[in-house]
Design a binder for these strands. Structure first.
Lengths: 351, 351
DNA sequence: CAGACTGACTGAAGCGCTTCAGTTCCGTCC
DNA sequence: GGACGGAACTGAAGCGCTTCAGTCAGTCTG
């Protein structure tokens, strides 16, 4: 095989080629002030000529006990995860705080072994179900949760989903709507999509889905709308096309809802499309409220009324919490960010 | 400080607690068949009670000389990168081939030092400019390029951008159009956006931008359209909003183009929006062609005529090349994937 | 019952680097 | 001229793990 392939050069190779100690070569790379400039250039040149590209990252990490990387556990496959622009924004906020760190992405509700092997100084769990096995593999590394699940003693950044959902529902009630439909993303991690009846509405392992759904329903009930009369469609993910499908179902029922509460902007965009497909005008025939306020919400047709959550800030804050952990401080407390309703053109009073 | 914090348990801690050798504890984790089942459970239990979460990933990587991770160098910040769904799809294809590997994301045209420290077995460069300093830091690791740049001896997966652009332009010419506008993404990595005049059109370090632009212009010229009369807008990235801006500029010039050639679907979506903003009908007043065929192209309003490239396949193929490199084989040759024009409702004959 | 196996476990040699406490050498200062 | 201080460099002890060649007791075989 390749057993007699020439061995890769190491620090030692370079050191003995130059005739100095290994420590000096190391210093040439890491602490230029520890040796004379001339020796340093000599070392660097020799290294290059030997094909030595610098200290091995793994060995370096072992010796320094740091990886300069943060691991991110994602609930879905990458395309699934990134079909919602919210994640991109959060990740961007995160990476902007952790400047020189790279991001180790572990998609698909990562396996414990992937997490165990991940070379990251600290881990970030993005919107995972509560029972994820991956948490067992976190080990001594720090952990920060975004959104969910709630883990005792683990720092977390989240928003008040319940309150956000309430404000969305209250807005529509105030406009006089009485017939609603609710479009939510996954209540359970089983890939189901379809009408969410009784059984699926209990023991929901996704806190976010649960809180938003409950916020909608509680508010409607308080407003005098019987929850039993409100159809709920569960999409398997937060994806435009899935929203379109759910909305089509909702809008072809009778009586037809005059207002749709959507658990994400992506779902709402799908609903907008479904309305267009069916020749319904928004907001003339149908009011739609989203959740997130992704950038596109302000330029969609029509612009989307939605619950704003500070996505970039969420990522940045998660980054800051991770940094705190990295600095060896004790885990910061969970941090809640504010939401607010942004009123645009996708809602109108009930005719 | 935390100097007298109890030290983290290691394999040795567990070994001596159980009264076996370190090798045996290692085997308990990695080669269950090397010891009796009863001893194994005893070891695992003791480990748990000591708070030992399994072998340290870095030390393990040093000893085994593998990281189970592939590094991905990205040309932009994460939100920039992911605003184009094409990247998500490619990455998803990539990660689907490298099942148990995690992805180390290095955003923002990564610095050499970030690349040097990245703990990855193999690196993938996604659409980087040719002179990226990061390439110096690749070291002994394998490298696969997606799209660009062209690096001698480095495996690459790419499409025939020139041919794709030609087919788009030819399509519009065939429909009788004579007044064109071209919307391209970055020609140079300097964040510029605006009309791309002579100077910016030479020495383009992005092969993809170059080939598509040239494909458009060559074809138009062959079709009897003077290139000098074709306005070109350079967007700083492949982003809907940037496309909207460029298209607005193009569509408010006189004479107004009757057809727009867009170097990506995202830019084309922006152009669709700009047309809507200006009260122009597509394809009535304006024909638009995109590039990529992202999923949304088939459901946009109107559905987009575009040049299809097999995005997921591109990712998968890159993954396969990376695997080949990982297996120690010699670098595979560059692989070109096919493109084809997909005709939808965004183009019509010139009135 | 000798010899050959087998299964279970161990010792020790790495993997490639960082870092800290020295050592050496030389110019400086009183 | 001797003590001092700083700059330049070195030795060696880790960092935590994998792996391979053994060792050893017990089981099989003929």
């Amino acid at each position: 095989m390749d057993s007699d392939r020439p061995r890769r050069p190491t620090l030692d190779t370079v050191a003995s080629a130059v005739g100095v100690s290994r420590a000096t070569v190391s210093n040439a790379y890491n602490r230029p002030d520890q040796l004379s400039a001339s020796l340093r250039t000599r070392i660097l040149e020799t290294a290059r000529s030997l094909g030595y590209a610098g200290p091995d990252p793994v060995a370096r990490s072992l010796a320094t006990r740091q990886n300069l990387a943060v691991g991110v556990m994602l609930p879905q496959s990458l395309s699934g995860a990134f079909s919602d622009p919210a994640l991109s924004i959060v990740l961007d906020g995160l990476s902007s705080m952790l400047d020189d760190h790279s991001l180790v992405l572990m998609p698909g509700g990562p396996s414990p072994s992937m997490v165990a092997r991940a070379q990251a100084d600290v881990l970030v769990a993005y919107s995972l179900p509560s029972a994820a096995a991956a948490f067992d593999a976190v080990g001594p590394r720090g952990l920060v949760v975004i959104d969910q699940p709630v883990l005792p003693g683990v720092p977390r950044v989240f928003i008040d989903d319940y309150a956000g959902a309430r404000s969305a529902a209250a807005h529509l009630l105030a406009l006089g709507h009485r017939r609603f439909g609710i479009l939510t993303f996954a209540l359970h991690p089983d890939g189901f999509r379809g009408p969410a009846l009784g059984l699926r509405r209990s023991d929901i392992p996704f806190r976010v889905s649960h809180d938003r759904l409950t916020g909608y329903l509680d508010t409607l009930e308080n407003g005098g709308v019987t929850p039993e009369n409100v159809p709920v469609w569960e999409a398997s993910g937060s994806d435009r096309e899935l929203g379109r499908e759910g909305a089509r179902w909702m809008l072809t029922r009778s009586p037809r809802p005059s207002a749709l509460l959507c658990a994400s902007d992506q779902l709402a965009f799908g609903a907008l499309q479904a309305a267009r497909d069916l020749g319904l005008s928004v907001p003339g025939d149908l009011s739609v409220v989203g959740f997130d306020d992704v950038p596109e919400a302000s330029v969609s047709d029509p612009p989307l009324t939605t619950v704003r959550q500070p996505l970039a800030e969420k990522g940045r804050l998660a980054g800051r919490l991770a940094l705190t952990l990295l600095a060896g401080a004790r885990p910061p407390r969970p941090a809640r960010l504010d939401v607010s309703l942004v009123s645009r053109a996708s809602c109108a009073p009930k005719k």
